[in-house]
């Protein structure tokens, strides 16, 4: 168990490969006009310019580092806020039925509100920029983290608490010694879902006219008709989202025995 499956190493790349081939075929044969979907080679060139060229040598040249670091910081701050609220509240509501009853109606109603409806309000409250984006990211990532943590905490085998109690583990130490490790698989799913949603709401927050960030690039490119840059932005977000998910997973497994042994 827990060993990566080394059979079929090419399997995950078959679908991307087919999509890329179809894309080549579509643009080379002129089936799809260039202004709707540019040739993959041109996208690659734009991507290289965006990432590696010296700044100001061309539009968007060399802006990758500024945009990526701005976006990463926003995701990191928003996601951290969601973790700091979601895990403790989830633990409390999962462990204490009274608190679950107290909070569940409120939280489930708020959860039903689509994240995008918070955007206008956030703009009024926090203005355009960093704080609005962080608010949206935190808001969106909170719910999966909270809900999965609470579900995990509720489903801990009661025998574990009894076993802990007879071995001298009280309620408070029990949270760290029993509840969190026992609920770890669900907490991890909550964190991964939350991080995924963070990237989605990052773009939403950045579409509103901030000057840098990956979402800002996409919006900016749309305004001046640089469809290649829109696609570059999308690919960069996909890659960074995937990398952050892998990093999250790896660091959890390094930090927590329970994460390594139970997932």
């Amino acid at each position: 168990m827990n060993k990566p499956d080394i059979r079929f190493p090419v399997l995950p790349w078959i679908i991307p490969g087919i999509l890329l081939a179809a894309w080549f075929a579509a643009s080379r044969t002129g089936l799809v006009p260039d202004y709707l979907l540019p040739d993959p080679i041109r996208i690659a060139e734009s991507g290289v310019t965006y990432i590696f060229s010296p700044p100001d040598s061309a539009p968007y040249a060399g802006r990758f580092l500024t945009d990526a670091s701005a976006s990463l910081l926003r995701v990191f701050l928003g996601f951290s806020l969601a973790v700091l609220l979601g895990i403790p509240l989830g633990v409390i509501s999962g462990r204490i039925a009274f608190c679950h009853k107290l909070m569940s109606t409120t939280i489930n109603s708020l959860r039903a509100v689509p994240g995008i409806s918070w955007l206008p309000l956030a703009l009024v409250w926090f203005g355009i920029g960093m704080r609005t984006t962080i608010f949206l990211v935190a808001m969106a990532a909170f719910f999966p983290i909270y809900i999965n943590t609470a579900a995990g905490a509720r489903s801990v085998n009661p025998l574990f608490y009894q076993a802990g109690a007879m071995m001298g583990v009280g309620r408070i130490r029990g949270i760290f010694a029993i509840l969190l490790p026992a609920a770890m698989p669900q907490i991890i799913s909550g964190l991964r879902l939350g991080l995924g949603i963070s990237w989605a709401y990052l773009v939403l927050g950045e579409l509103t006219g901030v000057s840098n960030g990956l979402g800002a690039i996409i919006m900016d490119a749309r305004m001046i008709g640089r469809i290649d840059m829109i696609i570059v932005g999308i690919i960069v977000i996909a890659v960074m989202g995937r990398i952050s998910d892998v990093l999250l997973n790896t660091s959890l497994r390094l930090c927590f025995k329970s994460a390594k042994r139970m997932t």
Partner: peptide
């Protein structure tokens, strides 16, 4: 209340799976 002077071996498996 429960305490280490009276220990239980449970019917089911109550070992901590993460240890």
């Amino acid at each position: 209340r429960p305490g280490p002077d009276r220990c239980v071996v449970f019917q089911e498996d109550a070992l901590f799976p993460w240890l």
